[in-house]
Design a protein around this nucleic acid. Structure first.
Lengths: 247, 247
DNA sequence: TCAAATTTGCTCAAATTAAATCACAAAAAT
DNA sequence: ATTTTTGTGATTTAATTTGAGCAAATTTGA
C-alpha cells in the first residue's frame, strides 16, 4: 500500500468517525504502530487532523468538558446519519444521473458511493470537491454562491437546473411534517430544492429522527412527493407510511 | 507495446484507481520496472500525475510528506505575485462585472479587492468561496469540476459563459510568447479561458516574470489580445510594448 | 497522590524503492 | 550502409520507508 494511499484512507476514516485511535488504524490499514504514528504526525503537521493522546480527531472538534453534552448529541445523530447515508448510497446504480443537494447529511452520502459509472450534479461546493476527489464525474451547478450554506442557490441556479433530467436525487431537510411536507428556513434554498426536485424522477429525502414533526418557514415539497430515508422513527403514524423507509 | 499507448494506459488506470504502484503497473503492462519508472517520470514532468514513493497518484490528492518543497516553490515568486495582484485589484471599479479565472495568481487578487459594488463570476471553487467569505457578490460558473485545478471547465462551462458580458476579466497563464501568445497545458482549460475572454471587454493577464518566453501546449489568446500585468521583466523586447504593464 | 498501564518519540537495522549507469536492439536519419 | 537516436531491460548504488525495541512522558485508577 502506498504511503499516500494510507494517508488518504486515514482522512476518509476520520471524516466518518470524527475520532480514531492508533490501535484501530493499525488494524484497518494493516500497518505497525510506528507507521501509523508517523502518518498521524505528517497529517497533523499539514493541519489535516489533530493528533491527540491515543489517536487523532478531525479539526475543529471541541471536547472541552462543558461541551460534552453537545458533542455527545452530535455524535449520536452522526451514527444515525451514517446509517442513512450508507443506505442511500446503495441506491445509486450505473448510468444514474444523480442530483445531490447541499447539506451535511447528503455530504456523508458521498463517502459511501461506489458506482463510478453514475454522473453527479450538485449545488454544494464541498460536495463537488469531495466527489471529484473520490474519482466521480461531477458537475457543479452554476449560480450565486451563498456563504451560509456554501451552496449555489438563487434564480440563476434555478435557471441552470432546467436543462437537467435526473434519474435520482437526494435532499436534506430541516423539518418533516405530514401537513406541511418538507421545509427549510431559507426561501432561496427552498426554491432551489423545489426546482431540482421538479427535474428529478426519484426523490429521496435523507433525514434523521430529530426532524420529524418539525416545521421550518418555507416548504419545498409535499410529504408524498419523496421517499424518506430515515432511522429510529419514534412517531407511530409515520411508521406505516409506504414512502418512509426505515433503515 | 508503444510508448504512447503505455502512457495512455497508465493515465486510464490511474483515473480509475486514484493511486497505483510501480509493481502493479509492471504486471498490468508487462514492462520492466525501469520502463514504468521512466514513464511515470515523463507523466510527472508533464503534470499529468504525481509521482510518489512506490508509485503514483492523480493530481489533487496531495498528501505528500515533503510539503516543504511545494511550499517553497509556491513562495518562490510570491512577492512578485502579490505585487501584481495588488495592482490588478485596483482596476476593479464600482459596477464592474468581473470574471476571475481559476489559478493561484488570480486567487491572490481576491485578497486585495475592495470594491463591493462590483459583481464577480469565477470558475474556481476556492476563488468563489474566498470571494463570498470576503463579502463580495459571487457567481460560480456551472459545469464539470476537474480535480487537478479545482476549476470548472469543459463544454458545459463554455456554454454557460455565453450568457455573460463581463466588463473586465483576469486570467493566469503558463506561458507568454510574442508568437504563440498565451498558453496552458490543458486543452479544456485553454478553451474555457478562450471563451471567457470572448465574453469580456477588457482582458488582463496576471503573470510573473518566470512565464515569459515559455510556450505550453495549447494557446488561448494572441499576445495583443490582453494587457499583461507583470513585474521585473528581463527581456527587453517586451518592455517597450504598450500592452505590457510593469508594476 | 502515587504506582501501574498505556502511549509517545526516538534510534537503528532491515526491507523496499528510486535513480544512475551501462548494454543492447530497433527504428530513423544521414 | 552506417551513424544517430530512441526505447528497453539489467545492475548497482543511494535514498526512503518501515517495524521493533526502549526510555521518557502521559494518562488512569485506586
Amino acid at each position: 500500500m502506498l504511503l499516500e494511499e494510507r494517508l488518504n484512507e486515514i482522512l476518509c476514516i476520520l471524516e466518518q468517525k470524527r475520532t480514531v485511535t492508533v490501535q484501530e488504524l493499525t488494524e484497518i490499514l494493516n500497518a505497525s504502530e510506528s507507521t501509523i504514528r508517523r502518518d498521524l504526525t505528517v497529517l497533523h503537521r499539514k493541519g489535516l487532523l489533530v493528533k491527540v493522546h491515543g489517536g487523532a480527531t478531525v479539526i475543529g472538534i471541541n471536547y472541552s468538558t462543558k461541551d460534552d453534552d453537545v458533542a455527545t448529541r452530535q455524535d449520536l445523530n452522526r451514527d444515525e446519519k451514517i446509517h442513512i447515508a450508507r443506505y442511500a448510497a446503495e441506491l445509486v446504480q450505473a448510468n444514474d444521473f444523480v442530483y445531490i443537494d447541499a447539506g451535511t447529511t447528503t455530504e456523508l452520502l458521498i463517502d459511501f458511493l461506489t458506482e463510478k459509472k453514475a454522473i453527479f450534479v450538485t449545488n454544494g461546493i464541498n460536495h463537488a470537491k469531495k466527489l471529484v476527489q473520490r474519482g466521480f464525474t461531477c458537475y457543479l451547478l452554476g449560480g450565486e454562491l451563498k456563504l451560509s450554506t456554501e451552496a449555489v442557490i438563487g434564480s440563476e441556479a434555478i435557471f441552470n437546473l432546467q436543462k437537467y433530467n435526473f434519474t435520482k436525487g437526494f435532499w436534506g431537510t430541516n423539518g418533516v411534517s405530514l401537513q406541511r411536507g418538507f421545509s427549510t428556513p431559507d426561501i432561496n434554498e427552498a426554491m432551489t430544492k423545489k426546482e431540482s426536485m421538479k427535474q428529478t424522477k426519484e426523490h429521496y429525502i435523507l433525514c434523521d429522527s430529530s426532524k420529524f414533526n418539525q416545521i421550518s418557514p418555507v416548504s419545498f415539497a409535499l410529504f408524498t412527493e419523496a421517499t424518506i430515508i430515515t432511522t429510529n422513527v419514534q412517531d407511530e403514524q409515520y411508521k406505516k407510511l409506504k414512502n418512509v423507509k426505515e433503515v
